[in-house]
């Protein structure tokens, strides 16, 4: 099997957040590898936020959707907030039609808004708000 060197999605560290930009059409093993890598990096770096930019993705099928959802859940267990940013309209329409609405995954229009969301989330937590999730 041809598994070239670039067969992993790079994870960048930005302050106390991890940044992933998915730019390739991911096959399933690549998606699973991303989940593994992110889990390890969150623990290694004590990251408090994970930002996944999917603006380059032309489709998100149930497998990729499920992977995004598990990453968000795993991150939450490890005390990091995940924000998925940049989903294209056609992708969003299709995901909804498919029956996948990614409950529990935070979203934002672009990376900038996503980072802001992670920051406010941290700030809210530091305020020791017992009820972290405002309506």
């Amino acid at each position: 099997m041809a598994s070239d060197v670039g067969d992993r999605i790079p994870i960048l560290k930005l302050g106390d957040a991890l940044l992933v930009t998915i730019q390739v059409d991911m096959h399933d093993r690549l998606a699973l590898a991303l989940e593994d890598d992110l889990t390890n990096r969150i623990v290694q770096t004590s990251a408090k936020g994970v930002l996944i930019d999917i603006s380059a993705l032309e489709i998100v099928d149930s497998f990729i959707g499920r992977t995004l959802a598990s990453i968000a859940q795993i991150a939450r267990v490890l005390d990091a907030e995940t924000v998925v940013v940049g989903m294209r309209p056609a992708v969003a329409i299709t995901l909804v039609e498919l029956g996948l609405s990614l409950p529990g995954v935070r979203t934002a229009l672009n990376a900038e808004r996503g980072m802001a969301l992670i920051r406010t989330h941290r700030a809210d937590e530091l305020d020791a708000d017992p009820d972290g999730d405002a309506a």
Partner: peptide
């Protein structure tokens, strides 16, 4: 574009 995305996604599901 939306129809393309729908059929590509369906194909991805069925190929899997």
């Amino acid at each position: 574009l939306v129809d393309q995305t729908k059929i590509v996604t369906a194909a991805s599901e069925l190929a899997r």
